[in-house]
Deep mutational scan, measured.
Amino acid sequence: MDETGKELVLALYDYQEKSPREVTMKKGDILTLLNSTNKDSWKVEVKITVNGKTYERQGFVPAAYVKKL
């Protein structure tokens, strides 16, 4: 869990989004878990840094590609 009590997951593999509802992640990324009720895909939040500014983006990733921490 992070400092706000949200559950975290670790990306086990790289994943490139295939639709606007998904998010891209790299192996080793730590993501905030938002919903894990679907056995196939979990909703997560990723933090992306562009030019020194951090943005948050929500979307789905394959459940088999992440592990709860």
Rank of each mutant, 00 (worst) to 15 (best):
residue 34 L to K: 03
residue 44 V to W: 02
residue 28 G to Q: 00
residue 28 G to E: 02
residue 8 L to W: 14
residue 56 E to L: 15
residue 10 L to C: 13
residue 23 V to L: 11
residue 62 P to K: 06
residue 57 R to H: 06
residue 62 P to T: 04
residue 58 Q to Y: 06
residue 19 S to H: 11
residue 57 R to A: 06
residue 22 E to A: 06
residue 39 K to D: 09
residue 54 T to Y: 08
residue 13 Y to F: 12
residue 30 I to E: 02
residue 25 M to C: 04
residue 68 K to H: 08
residue 45 E to S: 15
residue 2 D to P: 13
residue 63 A to S: 14
residue 46 V to S: 06
residue 2 D to K: 14
residue 33 L to A: 00
residue 46 V to C: 09
residue 14 D to L: 05
residue 41 S to P: 01
residue 10 L to F: 08
residue 66 V to D: 03
residue 30 I to Y: 04
residue 14 D to E: 03
residue 2 D to Y: 12
residue 45 E to P: 00
residue 27 K to V: 08
residue 10 L to Y: 10
residue 34 L to T: 02
residue 54 T to P: 07
residue 44 V to C: 02
residue 6 K to S: 10
residue 61 V to N: 01
residue 57 R to L: 09
residue 31 L to M: 12
residue 15 Y to E: 01
residue 28 G to K: 03
residue 5 G to I: 13
residue 1 M to W: 13
residue 36 S to V: 05
residue 60 F to S: 03
residue 51 N to Y: 06
residue 51 N to C: 12
residue 14 D to K: 02
residue 2 D to W: 13
residue 62 P to N: 05
residue 59 G to C: 07
residue 69 L to D: 01
residue 49 T to N: 09
residue 46 V to D: 00
residue 23 V to K: 01
residue 29 D to M: 13
residue 14 D to G: 04
residue 24 T to L: 02
residue 54 T to K: 07
residue 38 N to A: 08
residue 41 S to F: 15
residue 20 P to F: 08
residue 1 M to L: 12
residue 7 E to P: 09
residue 12 L to Y: 02
residue 33 L to G: 00
residue 3 E to I: 13
residue 3 E to M: 13
residue 61 V to R: 00
residue 3 E to G: 14
residue 14 D to I: 06
residue 66 V to C: 10
residue 21 R to L: 14
residue 20 P to C: 11
residue 50 V to F: 08
residue 13 Y to M: 12
residue 66 V to E: 01
residue 66 V to T: 01
residue 22 E to M: 04
residue 39 K to S: 11
residue 33 L to F: 02
residue 9 V to F: 04
residue 24 T to V: 02
residue 21 R to E: 15
residue 56 E to H: 15
residue 66 V to K: 01
residue 54 T to C: 12
residue 56 E to N: 15
residue 15 Y to A: 01
residue 10 L to S: 03
residue 67 K to F: 07
residue 30 I to A: 01
residue 40 D to N: 11
residue 55 Y to I: 14
residue 26 K to P: 01
residue 52 G to M: 04
residue 12 L to N: 02
residue 16 Q to L: 12
residue 51 N to S: 08
residue 5 G to M: 12
residue 52 G to D: 07
residue 51 N to E: 10
residue 27 K to R: 10
residue 57 R to S: 05
residue 66 V to H: 01
residue 56 E to S: 15
residue 69 L to Q: 03
residue 4 T to M: 13
residue 58 Q to W: 07
residue 54 T to S: 10
residue 23 V to E: 01
residue 52 G to N: 07
residue 38 N to W: 05
residue 60 F to K: 00
residue 5 G to K: 14
residue 52 G to H: 05
residue 59 G to L: 06
residue 66 V to I: 07
residue 59 G to A: 03
residue 12 L to M: 08
residue 39 K to F: 07
residue 43 K to M: 15
residue 60 F to G: 00
residue 69 L to C: 14
residue 3 E to V: 14
residue 48 I to R: 08
residue 35 N to R: 05
residue 68 K to C: 11
residue 27 K to M: 06
residue 19 S to D: 11
residue 42 W to A: 01
residue 19 S to E: 08
residue 13 Y to V: 12
residue 21 R to W: 15
residue 42 W to D: 00
residue 20 P to W: 09
residue 62 P to W: 06
residue 57 R to K: 12
residue 52 G to L: 03
